[in-house]
Amino acid sequence: MKFNKESILQSIGDCKKSTPVKISSTVLKSVFRWFILLSIGYIVLYPLFYMITTSISTKEAFLDPTSVWIPNSVTLENFTFMYKVMDYGAALLATLRIEMVSALLEVFTCAIVAYGFARFKFPLRKILTALLFVTILIPTPMIVMPLMTNFSKLDFLGILGLFNKISGIDLRPDLLGTPWTFYLPSLFASGLKSGLLIYIYIQFFKGLPYELEEASWIDGAGPIRTFFAIAVPSSGVVILTVIVFSIIWHWNDYFMASMFMDEGYPLAVTMSKLHDLLNYNGIYLSPEKPNGLAYVLTGCLMFIIPPLIFYLIVQHWFVESIDRVGITG
């Protein structure tokens, strides 16, 4: 008897056809899979749906037990009220001006630094990489107080302080309350969770082929030109991942902003003070007046709508790219 490829494939095909048990087990499996995914998906999406229904229903519909998911009567009153309470427009602008600019700066500088770590050999590289990990491990609350005192009199490594002692002129600027407390760390690749972003970049850059870079070296391009002409165009995937992470983390950051700013707070800080703001406007959350909850949830929805829209736009590329970035190394 002769065995060739076709006959083996044929017999495998026969086996598959002739076993109805297998088919029913795959159906069972996919039903089971869908059941698990949908039920946990329900848990994931529940708060979002709950926020949406609550925010668009009128007070009567919110308290009415018969209207659960689709409210009996719809209104936008919650939104207009919360827009005023949160000073939404100004806060949104502050978020864009402070947090988003620093997020994009961070995406850029972290790429440069990671390129140096991943593609060049230089003395102390191992020690510096170890220090990079330390920055990932130590949470920012640990260093926020000294940072505040330093920002109030920014002293570039003692240079300006020395100048002050010699000449008596105090050039040390007070940066507290200005967006520079966010821009400066981002410019030097040590902003919000920069260590993690650099790490993601490094893992990706390590996997790039060397041939292209060598060609560009031979053609006489310098390191900066090589970085912009070769490395950046071929790492769209990882840049997108880092942009998503950086923007989301900056959007949600309220701790640093509440520490460094005095006024003109970004949206996240407004959210963390939502209860006080509501109390100030005469709305108290109590078991007797459950419609206060509707205002809180409307505020939450208004806070997550911009990043949600952003995520819905990029998720198509983002979800697919996550496999190829190789974060795990």
């Binding site: 630094v113 230089f122 410019l187 030097f188």
Partner: peptide, 23 residues
């Protein structure tokens, strides 16, 4: 390589290492 990384080294010292020691 050091040129690329130097950006981070400055940031690390200014915005991480010194504050950490102070803390």
């Amino acid at each position: 390589g050091l040129m690329f990384v130097s950006i981070w080294i400055v940031g690390f010292v200014l915005f991480f290492f010194i504050p950490l020691c102070q803390s």
